[in-house]
Simulated assay, not measured.
Amino acid sequence: DSGNRFVRPGGASHLFLLTQGYAVLDGPSMPIIGKDGAEPNDTYVEQLTASAKAAVDAVVALGVADRNRIAVGGHSYGAFMTANLLAHTDLFRAGIARSGAYNRTLTPFGFQSEQRTYWEATDTYTKMSPFTYVRNIKDPILLIHGEADDNSGTFPIQSERFYAALKGAGANVRYVVLPNEAHGYRARESNLHTLWEMTRWLDTYVKNAPPRAEKPAAK
């Protein structure tokens, strides 16, 4: 392809955040693989967190990011990854999760590349579910979901129950429902509102956030 082609974001693309002063690492590669005959998802969390740390280290080394001012976000499976990263790392100041699945017991007959059922891989389903670890999520998370999402695995109940669990655990969470929207957002009003929510969230909890509190030294 031509190196002179311009990117033309549309809809509620995260690339519009470039206009608000943010640097965006778009679509970092985070493969989940199996080794020596093991199922890839059996070490999903370990591989995901290692990839995220490598991505953060890379953008900080390039000089385009402040380690204390980085957010993570995604749509659908990317939202699922976002929630897991907030549950299992302290790399990010905030997260944005759109139309995701957070409790894998609600997708018991497989998902994405997972072919085993819940009853065949109960421990893996449980460990992969950020719902299991809501008490670990200490950084602000914005949930957005289409009210009429009919995509298999990402029915609105996923965000509804995740939000309820986060609130019960005392997390800083906001849940936005987009009327009449399915898995992808179509209406101009929905897309503009989503962009407003995303920008407001990041301005509040990333761009203008106070420095992280220093962790006490180990004794």
Rank of each mutant, 00 (worst) to 15 (best):
residue 74 G to H: 02
residue 198 M to E: 14
residue 163 Y to D: 14
residue 17 L to W: 05
residue 146 G to L: 10
residue 138 K to W: 02
residue 175 Y to K: 00
residue 25 L to R: 06
residue 11 G to M: 12
residue 196 W to H: 12
residue 83 A to V: 08
residue 40 P to Y: 14
residue 185 Y to H: 02
residue 10 G to H: 10
residue 46 E to F: 08
residue 5 R to G: 02
residue 202 L to M: 09
residue 171 A to K: 04
residue 107 T to F: 08
residue 24 V to Y: 05
residue 185 Y to E: 01
residue 180 N to K: 15
residue 196 W to I: 00
residue 28 P to Q: 09
residue 82 T to D: 09
residue 186 R to C: 00
residue 131 F to N: 04
residue 113 S to F: 09
residue 213 A to C: 02
residue 90 D to S: 14
residue 154 T to F: 14
residue 204 T to Q: 14
residue 163 Y to F: 15
residue 91 L to P: 11
residue 62 L to W: 14
residue 9 P to Y: 10
residue 128 M to V: 05
residue 197 E to A: 04
residue 113 S to H: 06
residue 51 S to E: 08
residue 116 R to Y: 08
residue 101 A to C: 11
residue 103 N to R: 10
residue 47 Q to A: 04
residue 165 A to I: 05
residue 30 M to A: 04
residue 215 K to N: 14
residue 170 G to T: 01
residue 140 P to D: 04
residue 208 N to R: 01
residue 97 A to S: 15
residue 157 I to D: 12
residue 106 L to T: 13
residue 82 T to W: 06
residue 20 Q to F: 01
residue 115 Q to M: 05
residue 192 L to C: 00
residue 164 A to M: 03
residue 89 T to G: 11
residue 124 T to L: 12
residue 125 Y to V: 09
residue 157 I to C: 01
residue 155 F to G: 10
residue 115 Q to R: 12
residue 165 A to G: 07
residue 44 Y to I: 05
residue 154 T to P: 07
residue 21 G to A: 03
residue 122 T to V: 04
